[in-house]
Amino acid sequence: MSEVKTRADRKPAKAKKSPLREWFDSILFAVVAATLIRWLFMEAFTIPTPSMENSLMVGDFLFVSKLHYGTRTTTTPLQVPLTHQKIWGTNIPSYSTAIQLPSYRLPGFTSVKNGDVVVFNVPPKYLNDNIDYPVDLKTNYIKRCVGIPGDVLEVRQREVYVNGTLLPKPPRSEQKYFLKTTEVLDAAFFRKYDIVNDYRDPGQPTENWKPLEQYNDSTKSSTMVGYSINTTETVINQLKGFDWVKGIEPMSDKPGEMSPGIYGTPTFKWNHDNFGPITVPKQGVTIPINAQTIALYGPVIELYEGNENVVSSPTGIKIGGKPITSYTFKQDYYFMMGDNRDNSLDSRFWGFVPADHIVGKAVFVWMSLDPNPDKWYNKIRWNRLFRTID
Rank of each mutant, 00 (worst) to 15 (best):
F109M: 08
P250H: 10
D201Q: 13
I47R: 07
V365C: 08
Q283W: 03
S222I: 05
N128A: 06
G338P: 10
N343K: 11
P314M: 11
L167D: 07
P77Y: 07
P205E: 12
T6R: 12
F45D: 10
D339E: 10
F190K: 10
L345E: 08
K11F: 00
G256D: 15
S111N: 05
L40P: 06
G320S: 05
A44E: 03
A8F: 10
T182A: 04
N216Q: 07
I389P: 14
D356W: 15
G360W: 14
N121A: 09
V235W: 02
Y133V: 02
M224L: 14
D60K: 07
E249K: 13
F335H: 01
F268D: 00
F242R: 00
Y333T: 01
D136E: 00
T35D: 05
V285F: 11
S2W: 09
L185C: 13
M336F: 00
Y263G: 01
F242H: 00
Q79D: 05
I148P: 01
V285H: 09
P202G: 02
G59D: 00
R21N: 15
N163P: 11
A98P: 05
P12K: 07
S65E: 04
I131L: 02
V80H: 08
P107D: 11
T265Y: 00
V300K: 15
T286L: 11
P354E: 10
S347T: 02
G276V: 11
E183M: 10
T73V: 06
